[in-house]
Nucleic acid binder design. Structure first.
Length: 469
RNA sequence: GGUGGGUUGGCCGAGAGGCGAGGCAACGGAUUGCAAAUCCGUCUACACGGGUUCAAAUCCCGUACCCACCUCCA
């Protein structure tokens, strides 16, 4: 089985062809930790978490590197504004990002370096670019170092643009630049900026330009040539274009394949802080089970825009309840000892086809439909096999309710046991009432439980109950 | 001005020349003491206008609208 992915650089589906067979190196751009993550940010994490899980299931060893940009103009501005060190802002938001990984069941990257932790490597790379004639120190004495776009004829290859067709950046002060499209590798320290936000260099004190950290990190942790570079589609230009240019100009082949996830929109435009249409992960998770939020983010194809709405989120919650319901019922009947086994062929085919999760989910639903029929017959080998397969498929998407991660989210043991014995006592009363056809009493008990948030269903094997979230 | 992507049934959301995903909602039936859950069934669309083809949601041309990027951005 070969995974095919859509390569943004060549705009076609391509087979994954790892540099080192059996191993896949992935770099994806993390966050600039100037604020806590919103659900658009976390969509990217979920997408790459699914990619990792699928590759690992296919027997690949996966190394994922994602940067944390912990220094930039906005972080410095926030520190200033809040009257505390810039790094206090960065660390706080980095923790919020890690909390969001955890709450949505995303395994953290293998390595997650901070921009400020890779300054020497960046400086080495700048030296190389200077030597090769692809970079220059600004003539205005600012201490800025720029990449010379005109010196690199391939510039624009990733985003399929020609330098001459591009609009010149209107905001960037052109002072030290030879061409308005030249971008900063290194930014000289400006008056008023904290000393702690600068590092010594041959050109004076300064701090990293944004793009260079990714090139330096990818080279250090994945090698000069690696398999997949990912990130949000909004990073394709200029960020990824610039990364590609500087790495190649420094003599490194860089990423073999580029993978970009589409945005999550709210009110018709990209969720972003500057538009003000953001929904924080930490907030949404208070209203909706985290596993259902993950299902929502994972259910759409990663290259399709998700137009967020309360309705579509609510629908995802309902859709996931059907899946969760089957897993819970099947696990109860089979004694809860069925481990994930193998995904079905149709599921695998879908995932191999550019992570076609919607098609994979259609297959999952079909398997669950047969599983639901088996449920009527009580415990059976077929039921266990179906549950094992369903769990395997859910595990690939990171939404197996019986996995260690999500099971851990259930109420604490002691409380759960106390609740359970109370509910069972009431259900016993109800069963006695039903046995004597005293349905008024039976319904009263059920209503009381429902009022307390406990739902009761009668099955051929007796009543089952669950806490309504 | 340049570069990509999109417009599918009441809703969400796949597909990408013939065999018309899947889910949600709705309706009918089975099951149930009644429910719930489940199963069976019904409804069935491809922005608009041309064209190619035996056959187009799918290819081509044009039009409209939407999104992203060309400035920090997942």
């Amino acid at each position: 089985m070969t995974l095919r992915l859509y390569d943004t650089a060549t705009r076609q589906l391509r087979d994954l062809d790892p540099v080192v067979p059996g191993h896949v190196g992935i770099y994806h751009c993390g966050l600039t930790v100037q604020g806590p993550p919103h659900i658009g940010h976390i969509r990217k994490e979920v997408v790459f978490d699914v990619l990792r899980r699928w590759l690992e299931r296919g027997g690949h060893e996966v190394t994922i590197v994602a940067n944390v940009t912990d220094i930039d103009d906005k972080i410095l501005a926030k520190g200033e504004e809040q009257g505390r060190p810039w790094f206090a802002v960065a660390y706080e938001n980095e923790r919020a990002l890690h909390a969001a990984y955890e709450v949505l069941g995303c395994r953290p990257p293998t390595y997650e370096p901070r921009a400020t932790g890779i300054v020497p490597e960046m400086l080495e790379m700048i030296e190389t670019l200077l030597e090769r004639g692809h970079a220059y120190v600004a003539a205005d004495g600012s201490g800025d170092v720029y990449f010379d776009v005109r010196s690199w004829p391939a510039y624009g290859e990733l985003s399929n643009q020609r330098v001459d067709d591009m609009q010149a950046a209107p905001d960037a002060p052109p002072e030290g630049k030879r061409d308005p499209r030249d971008f900063a590798l290194w930014k000289g320290r400006k008056d008023g900026e904290p000393e702690s936000a600068s590092w010594p260099t041959p050109w004076g004190r300064g701090r990293p330009g944004w793009h260079l950290e990714c090139s330096a990190m990818a080279a250090k942790y994945l090698g000069h040539e690696f398999d997949i570079h990912g990130g949000g589609l909004d990073l394709r230009f200029p960020h990824h274009e610039n990364e590609l240019a500087q790495s190649r100009a420094a003599g490194q082949p860089f990423a073999r394949l580029w993978m970009h996830n589409a945005m999550l929109n709210l009110s018709g435009s990209k969720m972003s802080k500057s538009v003000g249409n953001t929904l924080m992960v930490s907030e949404v998770v208070k209203r909706v089970p985290a596993i259902a939020l993950r299902y929502y983010l994972v259910a759409a194809h990663y290259r399709s825009i998700i137009e967020y709405s309360e309705e579509s989120l609510a629908e995802a919650v309902t859709a996931f309840e059907r899946i969760d319901g089957f897993v819970a019922r099947a696990a109860e009947l089979s004694g809860g000892v069925v481990e994930p086994t193998e995904v079905t062929d149709a599921f695998a085919t879908a995932m191999d086809d550019d992570l076609a999760v919607p098609a994979a989910l259609a297959e999952l639903q079909a398997v669950i439909a047969t599983g639901n029929k088996l449920l009527a017959g009580g415990d059976s080998a077929e039921l266990r096999a179906t549950l094992g397969s369903v769990r395997a498929m859910l595990d690939v998407l990171g939404v197996d309710p019986l996995s260690e991660h999500w099971r851990g989210a259930a109420p604490a043991g002691g409380d759960r046991a106390a609740l359970g014995s109370l509910v069972l006592a009431l259900l016993e009363q109800r069963q006695q009432a039903r046995a004597t056809k005293d349905f008024a009493t039976a319904d009263l008990v059920r209503d009381q439980l429902a009022a307390a948030g406990v739902e009761v269903e009668d099955t051929p094997h007796g009543p089952r109950w669950s806490v309504k979230s």
